[in-house]
Design a protein around this nucleic acid. Structure first.
Lengths: 343, 343
DNA sequence: TTGAAAGCGCTAACAA
DNA sequence: TTGTTAGCGCTTTCAA
């Protein structure tokens, strides 16, 4: 029974008060910046430090209006897209001493409910919901009280909700405008399943950019499929089938497809970017670097989204709730796969 | 000032007691399973449910010895390896109503310290430390009290610490034994930087399996490099340089290298697995599936590690602390890249 | 400037 | 079986 965790009691404010020979209230003031003599304050702080005193956040939370904790619910698990978001969000909040409860719902509404119950019990100040794809999802809840919720890389099917998602349309426009600016005239679009809102938005941006560049959009130049490299290779086989107009540039719905496209072209003896320029989407380091040549790609600035989400949640907690969908700008990262003239 | 979050007060146990016309103590018993009449209990539960009562976890934590929260510190950010671990850990613990505080230290000792201060303030029942690679790291701390800490996919430079890491050596042995069992005699090993303990352990397992199979280990068949596909391709150029004994199988230190190796072989006109068998390491879905043919690979069973970490932490919290390094078994997943006879 | 004391929401020991 | 009450560790009046 010796040396068991829990045997050694925590240092309380009472311990500090006793050691410093002052009252509890005085210690509280010394530590939290109340009216107190400078010398006493220093002395008390010294004692607290020496005793390694850590105020009990739960006891504090019982008094204050805020508990300095928030909940982070991810509908799926963490993945390629959520990681950077979560990382930036955590950095933003933990710098302010706000703890982040991690809740993974694995696409199970029951688990999500259980998590929310837990979070409400913990009296979190706010909740961030994030998803594996930015499409609409049922809103969490019902939340009985005025706890702010914000959706990041996810949208709730509720007009009162607030969400932060990438501007897929703008990202696609930038990519295709770039290809057109390089002198490409026959720009195809190989992308993922139409069931994704992102696919539909990127397709729209593609069309807009073509129009802006005065290029015509060919029906058989848009190829929806799945998100895989295999589909990218397959799409090349289709695009370069005999008797068809061959593209001189391909804007891909994600980097995996782009990599498949790149491999497919190389295996047909076509050169990237000389014969065909490629731009991907996601700017996924593993893919863009492993592609030959390195892949131009649209970056969704997920870290910025996570940071912004943190800021928005903070202001919502402070009372100015917001609603609607904010689309955050994407950035085109140009690499060799779409650079016609090498500098 | 209307409709601001926080305006609506939480339902307290007092509210429930009043609504049910009983005392606070009775409500507590009804909800927590004290001695009470079955009928009263049902009635009180009904009221609590109707009022959407959620016990304040902080007020509870003030009484109980345990707060039902733990801290999860990741030295880096979350990534490919930590994600499954964290996911399983969270699932294990949240099922028991234990909240997980997420702390990302981004390799910054100062941030790590700040996180630990915060966690101690929150009175977490335990801490899990995880890393981007399983190598030794400085122990966290100092932790003033008996809070159990366990390292997962990380090791502390402290004999008293407890860590859970994959059995790299065993995984490598399984991979190479499999290749030998397929009749391969000239098995090369293309791997990552020797600075990684995992690289050294996998190399050792490779050697052991060769010896067990009665194969000789050639000096020039072990190629350390970096973890990239580019290195995998480069290694093929070296292994198949004129005038050298060519391998008929290659065990790779990770899946990215394996994929590079696979591409390199194909581009030389060699067939996988007919001419050369390949086994990778990590069983990273993106890589193993995108390789042509699909890649055999060693799975580190990271979810099992996360689950086990949860269980170990729970028992440590209950008092039976452990120390030492536990290496958890890896599993070889065989796919086409190493299957000589197709069934 | 400091101390004393009430109370945050809950549990648990004790009384009735 | 139910009610009463003393805290858990802290903040925050209010008095001294």
């Amino acid at each position: 029974m010796i040396d068991q965790p829990g045997d050694l009691p925590h240092v309380t404010i009472r311990d500090v008060a006793q050691a410093a020979g002052v009252s509890i209230g005085t210690v509280s003031k010394a530590l939290n910046g109340g009216a107190i003599g400078a010398e006493t304050r220093e002395r008390i702080r010294g004692v607290a430090e020496a005793l390694n005193y850590r105020p009990n956040a739960m006891a504090q939370g019982l008094h204050r209006t805020r508990t300095m904790t928030i909940g982070l619910i991810t509908s799926d698990s963490f993945g390629r897209f959520t990681n950077p978001i979560v990382e930036a969000l955590e950095a933003r909040l933990s710098a302010l001493g706000i703890g982040v409860f991690m809740c993974i719902a694995t696409d199970d509404p029951e688990r999500e409910k259980a998590h929310i119950r837990q979070l409400l019990g913990k009296r979190v100040d706010g909740i961030v919901v994030t998803g594996r794809r930015a499409d609409k999802r049922p809103p969490i809840g019902p939340l009985p009280r005025g706890i702010p919720v914000i959706y990041v890389f996810a949208q709730a099917d509720d007009p009162g909700a607030f969400s932060l998602v990438p501007d897929d349309e703008g990202g696609a426009r930038a990519a295709v405008a770039h290809l057109a600016a390089q002198g490409r005239r026959e720009i195809a679009h190989v992308t993922g399943p139409m069931s994704f809102e992102a696919v539909r938005l990127r397709l729209r941006g593609y069309g807009q950019a073509l129009e802006a560049a005065g290029l015509k959009q060919r029906d058989d130049f848009t190829l929806p499929g799945d998100w895989s490299e295999a589909w990218g290779r397959e799409a090349i086989a289709r695009l370069f089938a005999p008797g068809r107009v061959a593209p001189d540039a391909i804007f891909c719905g994600n980097d995996q497809i782009a990599r498949g496209v790149s491999d497919g072209l190389r295996e047909r003896g076509l050169s990237v970017p000389r014969d065909v320029s490629i731009v991907g989407f996601d700017n996924w380091d593993v893919m863009v670097q492993a592609s030959r040549p390195p892949l131009s790609s649209v970056d969704m600035n997920l870290k910025a989204m996570g940071h912004e989400a943190g800021s928005r949640l903070l202001s919502a907690i402070q009372g100015d709730a917001q609603s609607g969908v904010i689309r955050m700008p994407c950035t085109l990262i140009v690499r060799e796969s779409s650079q016609t003239q090498v500098s």
